[in-house]
Design a protein around this nucleic acid. Structure first.
Length: 421
RNA sequence: GCGGAUGUAGCUCAGUGGUUAGAGCGCCUGACUGUGGCUCAGGAGGUCGCGGGUUCAAUUCUCGUUAUCCGCCCCA
């Protein structure tokens, strides 16, 4: 085997495409009920866009950017997430002037240059929503309701979403000092590299998996103790709204998110079927649009990792199955080829999903193919049927067979109960 | 980016320092010439990841490389 898919990428094979189509269909149907419109942005952007939005200190920028120079010597980056490009387009085309609202959704590939492992790819896909122009708790509740309704619809609604508030810039600045002070003893014991990382992003310590760090965190006051009054009020209001909407949630002080642009509300969702990897995450990013040159615009949104959702569904054995054809047409004798071609065309024109053997293989082989195709019916045509203007319709699941006049075929196919195997 | 494991048929995996490298599943053909699923028989299909080294001889030992998987960092 000479070529294979590039490292960290995945082909979506015919046997898997039904899953993707099902997820996409559920998502689109759902978000359209909430008035969201789709946006599609390029696969790559000016590297500076992500440097500004993700934050210089974040891991995404410091080591996971899939960036390169193009032939025109431009620095470009394959998008590491869906939000920043969408916001760039919003600004470029003035889609959300001050005072307006805008609701966007997308399904996009995204790219991160890390070492692939379980639930972690270099190219993956994100289903996302962004609600622009509102700073209300109701906006936060709306996007969370969408995300959690989707999870419930596809069968992953058993667990609550973890929510937190990280407040405004001033609050986080204050809290960073608190964390650093609380963790000083722990950090003194760490490698220089870990210490530098922690000093750049102290909040990252909060969801550390290091048992020592976890011990050291005991007794640390949650960030919600340091929220400004309006942030606190909004966070409380959000919880009431989620309860009212029957969205299961849990307040989790350690959820802080890795991208610099988040403010106030943040959230993350994990499944017990895929521990340690979030299936979706998001929150409020009130500063992002202004940061990249647009008018100050409060926003909230989320991104769902499609591959991870599928992994979780696989673990639960809840995958949808691809639908086979409705009918398999079998030429019982070699002279029936022409008749079969016409019959196949007619049936397709009537809306049936029809397969047949283009290789004129043996009758037995054609029936075997019919069986494998999962079609509930086989239609058999040979010299005899052509002469008498009849057809044999075989119900492959039941093993029954009927001989019918040719003009009754579509009627029989529609009315004969086609229970699945 | 760091650590560990693995790489033999389409798939899941056995196996051996030396003739023609195997199994199960899958695939194809056939079992009184027009009836699938079950059974039986036969068949196709492999440069044993790639490159170097040791050796009379390497798929087997060794080194490198590459890829995959798992864990970590981080996140979707």
């Amino acid at each position: 085997m000479k070529f294979q898919a590039p490292r960290g990428t995945e082909d979506i094979l015919p046997s898997q495409s039904a899953i993707w189509q099902t997820l996409e269909h559920h998502f689109q149907t759902l978000v359209e009920k909430f008035g969201y419109a789709e946006i599609r942005t390029p696969a790559f952007e000016d590297s500076d866009l992500f440097r500004r939005t993700a934050g210089e200190a974040s891991d995404i920028v410091t080591k996971e950017m899939y960036d390169f120079k193009d032939k025109g010597d431009r620095n470009v980056t394959l998008k590491p997430e869906g939000t920043a490009p969408a916001m760039r387009a919003v600004i470029q085309y003035a889609l959300c002037p001050p005072g307006n609202h805008l609701r966007l959704w997308y399904l996009t590939p995204f790219f991160r240059y890390g070492r692939p492992a379980r639930g972690r790819w270099r190219q993956a896909h994100q289903l996302g929503c962004e609600l622009l122009g509102s700073s209300s708790a109701q906006a936060d509740a709306e996007v969370l309701e969408i995300a959690m309704t989707f999870m419930a619809q596809i069968g992953l609604g058993d667990e609550p979403v973890m929510i937190n508030s990280i407040g405004r810039d001033e609050c986080r600045a204050k809290y960073r000092e608190v964390v650093l002070q609380h963790m000083a003893a722990y950090l003194a014991d760490q490698e220089a590299e870990a210490r530098a990382l922690a000093e750049k992003n102290p909040l990252g310590l909060l969801d550390s998996k290091d048992p020592k760090a976890k011990d050291a965190l005991v007794g640390l006051a949650p960030i919600t103790d340091f929220l400004e009054d309006d942030s606190k009020a909004r966070f409380e209001s959000l919880q009431e709204l989620l309860t009212e909407a029957e969205v299961p949630y849990k307040v989790a002080p350690y959820v802080v998110r890795g991208l610099d642009y988040y403010t106030e509300t943040v959230f993350e969702f994990e499944s017990k079927h895929l521990e340690g990897l979030s299936l979706f995450g998001g929150g409020r990013y009130d500063n992002l649009v202004k940061e990249i040159g647009g008018p100050a615009t409060p926003c909230v949104g989320f991104g769902i990792g499609v591959e991870r959702v599928i992994l979780a569904l696989e673990a639960m054995k809840k995958l949808p199955v691809a639908k086979g054809p409705d009918v398999f047409v079998v030429a019982a004798t070699a002279d029936a080829g022409g008749y079969c071609r016409k019959l196949v065309r007619d049936l397709r024109a009537q809306g049936f999903r029809v397969e047949w053997d283009v290789d004129n293989r043996s009758f037995k082989s054609q029936l075997r193919q019919a069986d494998k195709s999962t079609a509930p019916f086989a239609v058999l045509v040979g010299t005899e049927e052509i002469e008498t203007e009849t057809l044999k319709v075989r119900h492959l699941n039941k093993g029954e067979q009927r001989e019918i006049p040719q003009h009754e075929l579509s009627e029989v196919l529609r009315t004969w109960e086609s229970a699945n195997k």
